[in-house]
């Protein structure tokens, strides 16, 4: 239980989000372009962080699918900012030793000649520490 609370506290601190503001309308998930690729959806991030049910979020790959497009942030009627929780959960995983999702060695295989540098730096920021 203490561990559970600790993880919740850390996510709240890192994100600066107050999930209690949520009125559970689901607009974040309604607007999310990556919804179908996620196991846990934006509104579930908010609810599960609120209830301290963090572990399933961390074990899922849902947060790698978040596009950080801020549609959920801008359209949330309650200003909850779900994307910030997704980011905090993702950081909680990749900040751990050896948990980088994307390694520089993986990149050459993915390259194509039109690929903008912006894509690589963004992906490294999001998937690695």
């Amino acid at each position: 239980m203490a561990e559970r609370n600790n993880m919740k506290e850390q996510i709240l601190r890192t994100s600066g989000v107050n999930p209690l503001k949520c009125m559970r309308c689901g607009k974040c998930s309604a607007t999310c372009p990556a919804y179908d690729e996620m196991e846990y959806h934006p509104h579930q991030f908010v609810y599960m962080v609120e209830t301290g049910d963090i572990e399933p979020l961390l074990n899922s790959e849902s947060f790698y699918k978040c596009l950080t497009c801020f549609a959920c942030v801008d359209r949330c009627p309650r200003s909850v900012e779900p994307a910030k929780l997704v980011e905090a959960a993702r950081l909680m995983v990749i900040r751990e030793q050896g948990k980088n999702r994307l390694k520089p060695d993986d990149i050459p295989a993915q390259l194509d000649e039109d690929m903008p540098q912006q894509l690589l730096v963004s992906a490294l920021r999001k998937y690695s520490k």
């Binding site: 601190r13 890192t14 994100s15 600066g16 950080t68 900012e81 994307a83 910030k84 980011e87 905090a88 950081l91 912006q118 894509l119 730096v121 963004s122 992906a123 920021r125 999001k126």
Partner: peptide
């Protein structure tokens, strides 16, 4: 860095 991290830390 291409993307802004919303993490406060």
């Amino acid at each position: 860095g291409g993307v802004f991290s919303t993490a406060k830390d």
